[in-house]
């Protein structure tokens, strides 16, 4: 069995054409835009360094937007008594002294956004129980769009 020069060039040609075909595919436009969380609208809450009171309901309000379609959002309130983590915001807040948590507030919940919305103003009431520790907390907002791009904001708040 002998491989001729002709055979060989044939093989090469097939390889090369295969590659060319593969390269000629139409490209699909993909969404690469992150959704945005706007805490600048009237009545937006909480803003950086906000103070909320124990035993009283607190209303979260923010405007979400995306170029295509929003996905869902999630809220999370956790203590920052140890000052180990910081918020995502530029402005720094005055903080209490570092302390050991006893019964810190912990709130984790995910929320749906009606399908296909490019803009959505979220308003949610959150109970701040009367027995939780007062002090520095983080209020985390996580927002996704339909494709899975996620934007996060971590706001420093104080519970008193």
């Amino acid at each position: 069995m002998k491989m001729t020069r002709k055979n060989l060039s044939y093989c090469v040609l097939v390889f090369a054409t295969g590659m060319l075909f593969a390269c000629n595919k139409d490209k699909v436009e993909t969404d690469t835009t992150y959704p945005t969380i706007d805490l600048g609208i009237a009545g937006a809450s909480p803003v950086q360094c906000a103070v909320v009171e124990r035993g009283k309901p607190f209303v979260f309000k923010a405007k979400f937007s995306d170029n295509k379609a929003l996905g869902s959002y999630s809220l999370d309130i956790h203590h920052n008594f140890d000052h180990h983590t910081h918020s995502t915001e530029v402005k720094a807040c005055e903080e209490d002294a570092v302390k050991v948590p006893v019964t810190p507030m912990l709130y984790i919940k995910d929320y749906a956004i009606p399908a296909g919305r490019r803009e959505f103003v979220a308003t949610t009431e959150i109970d701040i129980p009367a027995h939780v520790d007062a002090g520095d907390y983080h209020f985390m907002i996580r927002l996704t769009d339909q494709e899975g791009w996620q934007t996060m904001r971590g706001i420093s708040i104080k519970i008193k």
Binding site: L70, G71, S72, Y73, S74, L75, D76, I108, K109, D110, Y111, M140, R142, T144, D145, Q146, E147, G148, W149, Q150
Partner: peptide, 18 residues
């Protein structure tokens, strides 16, 4: 590892589901 639009509070502690 596909990122979705969902968040999960139970196993995911409020994080985005991948």
């Amino acid at each position: 590892l596909n990122p979705t639009s969902a968040h999960d509070y139970r196993y995911g502690a409020g994080n985005q589901v991948f």
